[in-house]
């Protein structure tokens, strides 16, 4: 009955419904192979395409420069000192922006009155990208560190506020009703129900704004500075040194990835009960 000649040939199934899962080992291997292929092709292009090499330095040059500036300073500082400045700016701006953003967002999401008061100004400021604040930041805070904190802080503030609003508003009416029925006061309703159930969304905001900070820092360091990974990139651009630009980009990208991983670990600890924490 089940002879082999009436077995139809199986269609290849699309990736999203394929049954055999790729193991972690396999996917690491593929990632490594494709990464290696790109690096090799890149190096080959630099070696054998004369025009390409003039515009774009090869991976060897980039790594060589990176190693060199670990010891020798660019501008006033070495690579890690530049990175240190950048991290300091990100942290200070980010923490200020996140605290104000989460508080504002929770207030707007919880209280209709607070929302009515804050939202007109908030809605005007929200769509203005952080970079567009650079000129005003300079006029208000000068060319020093404060204006850089302000720019990072503003971008963080908007993202954190938006996510906190969404988190507070998404609190299940059933939960709120149940808490009221059990005699919770308005204050308890906030601290015991709304706040915990907004936490996953708040963390989403913290995560997104942290990645955004790593991009905004470039804008912030366009305000006159002589240090920082963003400054390395700008210096590279102004002197036509693409190698330095790429070194700066790699440093910032890797920093961003590390920060995101740390943030995710914190999040997993903090909200192990939620679906996002799994």
């Amino acid at each position: 009955m089940a002879t082999s000649n009436n077995i139809k040939k199986k269609k290849t199934k699309p990736a999203i419904i394929s049954e055999d899962q790729i193991t972690k080992k396999q996917s690491t291997l593929y990632a490594f192979i494709s990464f290696a292929v790109v690096v090799v092709l890149w190096q080959l292009a630099v070696l054998f395409l004369p025009n390409f090499g003039n515009i774009f330095p090869g991976p060897y040059d980039v790594v060589a420069l990176m190693i060199k500036i670990v010891k020798e300073p660019v501008g006033r500082l070495t690579l890690f000192a530049h990175l240190g400045w950048t991290l300091k700016r990100i942290f200070i701006g980010y923490i200020i922006g996140a605290v104000i953003g989460v508080i504002t967002g929770l207030a707007m999401g919880t209280s209709k009155l607070a929302n009515a008061i804050i939202s007109p100004v908030f809605e005007i400021l929200r769509p203005i990208p952080a970079i567009a604040w650079v000129p005003m930041a300079i006029l208000w805070f000068g060319l020093g560190e404060a204006s850089k904190y302000f720019i990072i802080g503003f971008s963080t503030f908007v993202i954190c506020a938006l996510n906190s609003i969404a988190g507070a508003r998404a609190t299940s009416e059933k939960l709120k009703g149940a808490a009221r029925m059990l005699g919770a006061s308005e204050r308890q309703l906030f601290s015991k129900i709304i706040l915990p159930s907004s936490v996953p969304q708040i963390f989403a905001g913290l995560q997104i704004s942290l990645s955004a900070s790593c991009s905004t820092i470039l804008a912030a360091e366009m305000v006159r500075s002589e240090e920082g990974a963003g400054w390395l990139i700008l210096r590279g651009m102004n002197t036509g040194n693409m190698t330095l630009v790429l070194v700066g980009l790699i440093v910032i990208s890797v920093t961003g990835l590390i920060l995101a991983t740390v943030m995710r670990a914190i999040e997993r600890k903090a909200i192990s009960w939620s679906f996002r924490g799994k």
């Binding site: 991009s215 651009m237 693409m242 630009v245």
Partner: peptide
């Protein structure tokens, strides 16, 4: 995609 968005500016301007 891990390249920060603003990072494309110097690259493209140099190219």
């Amino acid at each position: 995609r891990s390249v920060p968005g603003m990072g494309w500016i110097p690259v493209m301007i140099l190219i």
